[in-house]
Amino acid sequence: MNTASATALTPAPPAAQYRLAGDLAIWIFILAELLAFGVFFSAYAFTRAHHVELFDAEQRALHRDVGALNTALLLTASYFVVRAVQAAERFAARASSHWLLGAMVCGAGFIVLKLFEYGAAFDQGVSLSSSPFHMFYLSLTFFHFMHVILGMVILAALWFGARAGRYQPGDMNGMETGAAYWHMVDLVWLILFPLVYVIH
């Protein structure tokens, strides 16, 4: 890990060389987050093995179609973020900010759908203490939900930066770092959704 910090002091490496997109600091953070999610997922699997019928029954009560729509929204948002990075890399700051706006619209859609889902669940008395499955369902999705909100804050910061023309070839660290975080949020959902909503 020290090689990375040492090379940070040297001039930019040749383009052909392998390069870590985004700041090393965010990658350490991402690894820590993935570790936390990973342990949580394992705990879910472990508990599910002990309560298969309960989990099956309560999983069926979830809105899988809404979950699928949310998956589509997050994937689209990730695609838009990729386009935003590419746009910034060819000096198209305006286009870049538009793509980011698109990503934020998708993220907002995710949040709205999730709020409806929570509203319906709470009305049915679902809480962290109502059953082992509900505990994991709410814990995992809410933990992720907060990540989406943080991701939106980061996208908004990138959007302001893009509009101010802050990102361009040779100066992409901020945008790549934010993009890496957003993709992590997306990736976690891609595991969470099948695990909690689909797999019986």
Binding site: A36, A43, S129, F136, S139
Partner: peptide, 18 residues
């Protein structure tokens, strides 16, 4: 306290040595 703390507490404090 509610029993979900057993999960939340175990998972995050298991990472505390890092």
């Amino acid at each position: 306290a509610p029993e979900y703390w057993q999960w939340w507490g175990s998972i995050f404090s298991a990472l505390e040595p890092i």
